[in-house]
Design a protein around this nucleic acid. Structure first.
Lengths: 150, 150
DNA sequence: CGCGTATAGGTGTAGTTACACCCATATGCT
DNA sequence: AGCATATGGGTGTAACTACACCTATACGCG
């Protein structure tokens, strides 16, 4: 099926991805609501907890515009979960997760796990696996196009 | 691999989806930029072109919050691509694509096609197929959770 | 040392997304 | 007819996303 892409709506990979992303985000957010945190924030916090890095480094990892990351960090900083300090290079900002941030991560983890388990039980562990593989394959094959070209 | 979901970042389906969605959106947007339209807007316009419907009906199809759709339609209406008129039920709004909107769709289609073809050639037609299948499967299996519960 | 350029972040602007809440209208029941 | 309730949309608020552009700092070269 779908020999040539002629019907945009049904065949648009981006639109489909976005639709599923909306659905997934709502499901995760519903689970995490009890801890008053969104899946986007939890994910960002968890990434930041992997080690202190500059804003640019973290943005590159997440393939997110630096300005986007800057703004997404703001609510986390406001809650005291991350600290944004001036780095060695005084132009740069060093992002680190605070003790409160680590406590928050611990508190949210079981809720995230429940969400993830729900997804896996609804989709089947196997399906989730292939979905992850597909995503990984796409991330490996597609150009990043992030921020500035070259 | 990934027996039990213990490492949130790497195993979070939502985070992975969001990351790939960011990447895809940037790629499509780069192609569509020549026609000064975003893939989200093009997709919405194409959906709306399938037939005149109320805002709620369209929102249900797209699984988008009604307020979200309302706001996403605003720029399209501002460009004169869609018309938002009062429906039979005077509380409702009827969304229809204008002649200009259809012309726009025609003009953008080749750009969208180029984007979609680039994706398919980078990923492989087969991979895109399985990705679409996985997405479809997920959309069929996961609860909508949209708007108001029940 | 000083100047030109490159780099790190922030701001302005704009669009995407959703929840809570409000207003207006429609509907149903008495 | 009249009131209670349900439903369709809009607004307020807040977060996510990115591009263009600006500022400040760093770095390299003469």
């Amino acid at each position: 099926m779908s020999a040539a892409p002629s019907v945009p709506n049904f065949g648009c990979t981006c639109a489909r991805m976005r639709k599923l992303t909306r659905r997934l985000t709502r499901i995760y957010d519903a689970h995490l609501a009890a801890q008053a945190i969104k899946v986007t924030q939890y994910s960002l916090l968890a990434n930041a907890a992997a080690g202190e890095r500059t804003l640019s480094e973290l943005a590159a990892e997440l393939e997110m515009d630096r300005s986007t990351l800057s703004r997404n960090l703001a609510p986390l900083a406001a809650q005291g979960w991350v600290e944004i300090s001036v780095g060695a290079d005084s132009r740069s900002r060093s992002i680190s997760v605070t003790a409160a941030g680590r406590r928050k991560l611990k508190a949210v983890l079981p809720l995230w796990r429940k969400a993830q388990c729900e997804i896996e039980s609804l989709l089947g562990t196997k399906s989730v696996g292939t979905l992850h593989q597909d995503i990984e394959h796409a991330l490996a094959a597609l150009p990043m196009l992030s921020g500035k070209r070259a």
